[in-house]
Design a binder for these strands. Structure first.
Lengths: 136, 136
DNA sequence: AATGGACTCATACTAAAGTACCAATCCCTT
DNA sequence: AAGGGATTGGTACTTTAGTATGAGTCCATT
């Protein structure tokens, strides 16, 4: 909200400045009115583009951001989440075990707990549900 | 490219029209120059926003579009692709078999072929690779 | 008519995945 | 110090997944 106010203040300021400039230019005869109008048009054209770009950035981020709150809500521990990430890239339990320097038994335990917490029957379904929850 | 030319033509036309309007207004004394400038600024401000929005739509679509050419390149058949989609949503072979009204054996055959064609060792990896290829 | 691709299904395996239970540390909080 | 969650690991099993191989049907192209 603060940024919006600042942006609009800047816009009004720019408008006033351009107006002052154009008035002076027209009176002093240094600039033609067509050029003044053209400059104003171009300046606000690009202001429109830039503002829209910034507003979109704020909207796009959440859609691809992981929801860390949801992870804690589901009571998924750090280690379990690490395992979940490895499942998502298609690794087997043995491969995950080697990557995280633990035994395959440990990974199986983590996977079983993940399936319960994500209410999934299989690891493929767990990945799908995790993506629905925006935690992957 | 054609659209870009049309858009710029429309922009120039709008600029000329606004210029004509403002010249007439100022000469006839019906409008103050400040108001004219303000109108031009607002109009081009919104033109900027709208143009940027349209250009973004063209960019976003391809990133979430499935690459049907890639599917044929990988020699993945229609039925195999259907199975791939079901794997991606986390179904087991038996569940896929019931959904597509075929036996589990058939699904296993399709899955095996998919793994070869996608160069994957497991179904989870197949899903991951399919997404890399933009076919899911 | 013959060939080849797509789809189907089966059998018999081997290999992963997943379940159920138990248990030992470690670390943090009460 | 005691309790509890997190992490680790094991054994013993059941269930899915995946491989290998062969074979039949259907359909379009040659």
């Amino acid at each position: 909200m603060k940024k919006t106010i600042l942006i609009f203040a800047a816009l009004i300021l720019a408008l006033v400045l351009l107006f002052q400039l154009s008035t002076y230019a027209i009176i002093s005869g240094n600039l033609e009115i067509e050029i003044t109008i053209a400059i104003i048009a171009i300046v606000f054209f690009f202001i429109g583009i830039m503002l829209h770009k910034k507003s979109l950035l704020k909207q796009e981020r959440p859609s691809s951001e992981i929801d860390s709150k949801k992870i804690t809500d589901l009571e998924i521990s750090n280690r379990e989440y690490e395992v979940l990430q490895q499942i998502a890239i298609g690794l087997s339990n043995k491969e995950i075990a080697e990557k995280l320097f633990v035994s395959e038994s440990t990974i199986k335990t983590h996977v079983s707990n993940l399936l319960i917490k994500l209410n999934a029957k299989r690891r493929t379904q767990a990945v799908q549900r995790a993506k629905d929850f925006q935690i992957l």
